[in-house]
Design a protein around this nucleic acid. Structure first.
Ligand SMILES: [Zn+2]
Ligand SMILES: [Zn+2]
Ligand SMILES: [Zn+2]
Ligand SMILES: [Zn+2]
Lengths: 135, 135
DNA sequence: ATTGACCTTATAGTAGCTTTATAGTTTAAA
DNA sequence: TTTAAACTATAAAGCTACTATAAGGTCAAT
């Protein structure tokens, strides 16, 4: 199977596949005489795994870490679970931060209606005055 | 006032100030004979404005847009308010996406306790099986 | 013979800085 | 006075996870 077929199968662009190979996330496949990459079912699974991790918001570094655990199948899986716990807390703190931000933005927005000149815009005034509660 | 003082005053690194100048967000200051930048109170306000916008999650492009409105103080402020409305909806959709992600991650995490081998890890199995509901 | 679809590598661009390298200037201590 | 610390300057690379472009080689069909 060549790169285009793999790309279509998993739903990724060919450049992305080469990029993952270059980053050490996907093992370098064999080559045809003309230099074309030849992929196997293992690669399909590997690439699909990477993509599912990305959908879950894991970084390439975190994926790399997971792969290293997979290479050692008889270790206890505490590290895997811990990685996910860490990632969940990343996500939760992002949510918290964004919710605080939303609140701030909404209150800023409430300080202006649409019938003013820029000079008197409540939004711009709110930003300029800087009585913002940070974090 | 030189760049280091400005940086300390606003709480930014000097490189960041040069970067904003290069990006056209901060007007180029006068220079001393030795080439050192000399800043005024205007620059302090301008830099503080940029930083507050950044804290609100506005992109440099959005900040640039806001600045262009400030240059035209007698226009109606509808565009300013619209920019903020757009940004609020950006933030809201990010929150929604992250909340869906969190749910997915938590249920994945629940599929494993810490007493297994990597081989039997519920988390890795969950990712590999790929019965994930996307988006 | 030439089109078109596919493949190759290398390079640059995206956002918003941060880091590094290299060098010149000012200020304070020894 | 010499010297070292602290400050300034520019330019370029690094960060993340790709995406896009360029310039070219390969292959099947027309
Ligand atoms: Zn994470
Ligand atoms: Zn307004
Ligand atoms: Zn925005
Ligand atoms: Zn586990």
């Amino acid at each position: 199977m060549r790169i285009g077929q793999l790309a279509q199968l998993v739903g990724v662009e060919t450049q992305t596949i080469r990029f993952y190979e270059q980053q050490g996330l996907l093992p370098p496949p064999d080559r045809q005489d003309n230099g074309y990459r030849v992929y196997t079912e293992k690669h399909v699974e590997g690439l699909a795994f990477i993509r599912r991790c990305r959908i879950l918001g894991l970084s390439l570094a975190e994926i790399h870490e997971l792969q290293s655990y997979q290479d050692d199948p008889h270790q206890p899986c505490t590290a895997v679970n811990a990685l996910l716990d860490d990632h969940i807390s990343h996500v939760r703190s992002q949510i918290t931060a964004l919710q605080a931000l939303e609140k701030q933005l909404v209150s800023l927005r409430a300080s202006c209606n649409d019938d003013r000149e820029v000079e008197a815009c409540g939004v711009l005034a709110g930003i300029s005055e800087g009585n913002m509660h940070q974090q």
